[in-house]
């Protein structure tokens, strides 16, 4: 019985790393957008926080799109 440890290891590494990356993007995105909202409520400038937040969320969104690309067989 041949166990493909290399493939198993690859699955483990890829899954964990991509999930962690998504979590970082989503977490920071949510944090900065919330920060921006709080800041704009108190009248302070919120543009940097908002930009940062949306950038992170946007990257998370790109990851989601990439997943769709991977899922749909027609794309490859």
């Amino acid at each position: 019985m041949r166990i493909d440890w290399a493939a198993l290891g690859t699955v483990a590494v890829v899954s964990v790393v991509s999930t962690v990356v998504f979590a970082i993007l989503l977490g920071l995105g949510v944090r900065f957008v919330s920060l921006a909202k709080v800041r704009s409520n108190t009248g302070a400038s919120s543009t940097t926080a908002l930009t940062a937040g949306y950038t992170f969320l946007g990257c998370a969104g790109l990851l989601v799109l990439y997943c769709i690309y991977l899922i749909v067989p027609q794309f490859h």
Partner: peptide
Amino acid sequence: GLAAALATRILYRATRKTS
């Protein structure tokens, strides 16, 4: 499970002071 556990930690950490 491992991936989810790590991701959960990260999400809670990142939003510790968030409303």
